[in-house]
């Protein structure tokens, strides 16, 4: 059984603002029956169309989805649209005390519905907000943009957390390797200060040692998680020759892995001019 806070239980058993505002000023609708949760949010604004005077929700979902929707409407009632636009999923979770990790996606659904409603107000577009960016998780239709966003907003470091927050990777699991790479990339970009300073001139032996260490520390773990592996074959000047093993050797995405991931990591940690090549059979 989930460990829900008293506040979550209260907002589930006595949800505030259930319903649908007739002739609402704007409306946001996210989720679907197939996904297991969905939320329809309707807002009424003041005469200047700046402030939210009423908010109502209809939710299909579990107790924490209903509680998150109820909390969302309570948070945004009385807010200006500009302030409401800054509400994050963490604000919803905080309002409820806390949500179980695996239920954080319920708070994200609340924030998404609010965004959809504000977009509806500003652009006049109704219905489902167009997905921004490339779809990474096809099971739940989660895009790269959305994954990057939950990582940044909630300081996530593990694939499992990303799944808890936006469901990506929670279906067939086929995209978990890609989520791992998005995590590495997003967090590396977010923390430029922790990047070790790159050394100046290196002897060949020093360079090989650093490349080998970078592969072991930064690259191999995420390939192994996908059932693959990597081996350093040779270093000739700035050319790094590697061999991909296991699942990686037959992976159609391996050219992308080579350039966008392996080469990027080696350039980041060893030297800017490195070019990674796959060993010719």
């Amino acid at each position: 059984m989930w460990d829900y806070t008293e506040k979550v239980k209260d907002h589930f058993l006595n949800p505030r603002n259930v319903g649908e505002i007739e002739n609402a000023d704007c409306m946001g609708e996210v989720g679907s029956l197939a996904c297991g949760d969905a939320l329809k949010l309707t807002l009424r604004l003041d005469e200047k169309k700046e402030k939210i005077v009423d908010a109502k929700f209809l939710t299909f979902g579990c107790a924490s989805a209903i509680a998150s929707s109820s909390a969302l409407t309570e948070i945004i009632k009385g807010m200006t649209i500009d302030s409401a636009a800054k509400v994050t999923n963490q604000d919803i979770a905080d309002y409820l005390g806390e949500l179980p990790e695996q239920k954080m996606h319920c708070s994200v659904m609340g924030r998404e519905a609010l965004e959809a409603a504000i977009a509806n107000l500003r652009t006049g577009k109704t219905g489902v907000v167009e997905l921004e960016g490339r779809v990474v998780c096809t099971c739940f239709g989660v895009t790269e943009t959305e994954i990057e966003r939950v990582i940044k907003e909630n300081s996530l470091t593990e694939v499992e957390q990303v799944t808890n927050y936006c469901k990506a990777g929670g279906g067939c699991g086929g995209c978990r390797g890609e989520i791992e790479r998005i995590l590495l990339r997003t967090n590396a970009a977010a923390k430029p200060t922790v990047k070790p300073s790159k050394p100046g001139r290196l002897t060949v032996m020093q360079k090989i040692k650093m490349i080998d260490e970078t592969i072991a520390r930064e690259i191999r773990p995420s390939l192994v998680q996908d059932g693959g592996d990597i081996e350093l074959v040779d270093v000739e000047g700035s050319r790094v020759i590697v061999a991909l093993r296991g699942a990686c050797s037959s992976c159609p995405a391996s050219p992308v892995t080579m350039k966008d991931f392996i080469q990027a990591k080696l350039r980041e940690f060893v030297a800017d001019d490195l070019v990674v090549e796959e060993e010719k059979q």
């Binding site: 297991g36 949760d37 979902g61 579990c62 239920k103 099971c139 929670g170 279906g171």
Partner: peptide
């Protein structure tokens, strides 16, 4: 058999 009770995201 719902997703939310199984601890996974799928029913």
């Amino acid at each position: 058999g719902s997703a939310c009770t199984s601890g996974s995201l799928e029913p």
